[in-house]
């Protein structure tokens, strides 16, 4: 199923300046894999780490977090805390 993903400002260089991209994905891992395939320029950032917000909740790295087409999906840099 296709999910719509929001890409943050400076990362849009890697998605042909598109704020929203669509990829086939049913979970976090497929999302990352297919983003890398479709937009290879995203790879360096993805390998450094990205988190994803699904309907407002932030997931740091759980691959098998399910994603549905109706979810709001936002890519975020990998989160660090203190």
């Amino acid at each position: 199923m296709m999910v719509k993903v929001r890409i943050w400002g400076s990362l849009q260089k890697a998605t042909d300046n598109k704020e929203f991209v669509e990829v086939e994905a049913e979970n976090f891992k497929q999302l990352l894999d297919n983003l890398s395939l479709k937009y290879p320029k995203l790879k360096p950032q993805i390998s450094r780490g990205v988190s994803v917000a699904i309907d407002g909740l932030i997931y740091k790295n759980s691959w098998f977090t399910p994603i549905k087409p109706e979810n709001e999906v936002v890519l975020m840099p990998y989160m660090v805390g203190g």
Binding site: W8, A53, D55, G56, L57, E72, V74, M76
Partner: peptide
């Protein structure tokens, strides 16, 4: 729509 992207719950 939060300043960092996602919509707040």
């Amino acid at each position: 729509k939060s300043s960092y992207g996602p919509t707040f719950d």
